[in-house]
């Protein structure tokens, strides 16, 4: 069992239950996550941990949907925004070929919404 994913899943469940209770939900049916590509997040395990942890709560059997957010850089020379693989050794602006680039997205890690009944 991977304790890192377990800790993250526990945290998701806590946030979800807090919002479910605040809206008097009978049942949580879906959870939408937005996760940047730079996060070390193993999607396959998440549902399994969640099913285990959520037993007996209003979030039992809810389906976790993960939307991955691509890694984007912005060129400091011409302000172009572009997708890039952070694992690439060289990252150039596709527009002006400058190497002066800055990360603008890819580290997101939040719960976008929940579907409740």
């Amino acid at each position: 069992m991977n304790i890192h994913e377990l800790a993250v899943t526990e945290s998701i469940l806590k946030v979800v239950l807090k919002h479910a209770e605040a809206s008097n939900a009978q049942k949580v049916v879906s959870i939408d996550l937005k996760v940047g590509e730079m996060r070390d997040f193993v999607e396959e395990w998440m549902q399994w941990y969640f099913d285990y942890l959520s037993k007996g709560t209003v979030a039992e059997e809810s389906k976790i949907n993960v939307t991955k957010i691509p890694v984007k850089f912005q060129c400091k020379e011409c302000a172009e925004n572009f997708n890039a693989d952070v694992k690439e050794k060289e990252i150039y602006c596709p527009c002006c070929e400058s190497k002066q680039v800055e990360l603008v997205s890819g580290t997101e890690f939040f719960i976008e919404s929940i579907g409740v009944i």
Binding site: V8, S11, I12, K14, V15, H19, S23, A25, Q26, V29, S30, L33, F109, F110, I111, E112, S113, I114, G115, V116, I117
Partner: peptide
């Protein structure tokens, strides 16, 4: 069956810890 209602949360996954 009641319709599904979506609640916007936009809260960090690790907000409890934060």
């Amino acid at each position: 069956m009641d319709p599904i209602k979506f609640i916007n949360i936009k809260e960090n996954i690790l907000s409890d810890n934060q």
